[in-house]
């Protein structure tokens, strides 16, 4: 992938909100989370929103790291493996009950891993290929959609 900072942020927001949102909508009823379905959606979508907000910050870090690369590219594998640091940070904030609006400490690790890991995978799979089909200019514009 060949992102610009602006493109990174746009792609991050669009794919997590649209693809991640749809995936979260489908997956939430299957997750073993406490409370009613409404409560569970509140938890999962808050986690998704947290990932989007923190993700925008992470993009600045990745952009900085990318500057050390002569090619100024962001290899596919890096885009996948960053699930580790991003997931860990969100989990840490949940554990510290630092995510507003939900009782983060009550989220079981298994459900979190399933939610975070699969959402990441689905979004990553979209970005590494199919995204280019409807948005044919996207890859040549550093990931910008608008």
């Amino acid at each position: 992938m060949l992102p610009t900072l602006n493109g990174r942020i746009q792609t991050r927001i669009a794919t997590l909100v649209v693809i991640g949102g749809l995936w979260t909508l489908l997956l939430t009823p299957l997750l073993s989370l406490p409370g009613s379905l409404g409560d569970r959606y509140t938890v999962t979508f808050t986690i998704l929103l947290t990932t989007v907000v923190l993700g925008v910050l992470w993009e600045f870090v990745y952009h900085l790291i990318m500057q050390f690369r002569w090619e100024k590219d962001w290899p596919t594998g890096l885009a996948l493996i960053t699930v580790v640091n991003e997931g860990a940070l969100v989990w840490l904030l949940l554990s510290l009950d630092a995510v507003p609006g939900i009782d983060g400490a009550a989220v079981p690790l298994g459900a979190f891993l399933l939610l975070f890991g699969t959402t990441w995978l689905v979004v990553w799979l979209m970005i590494v290929g199919p995204m280019r089909v409807p948005f044919i200019h996207w890859r040549f514009r550093g990931g910008r959609l608008v």
Partner: peptide
């Protein structure tokens, strides 16, 4: 460098 084709 790879990013001439779409990136920075």
């Amino acid at each position: 460098p790879k990013s001439v084709w779409g990136g920075q």
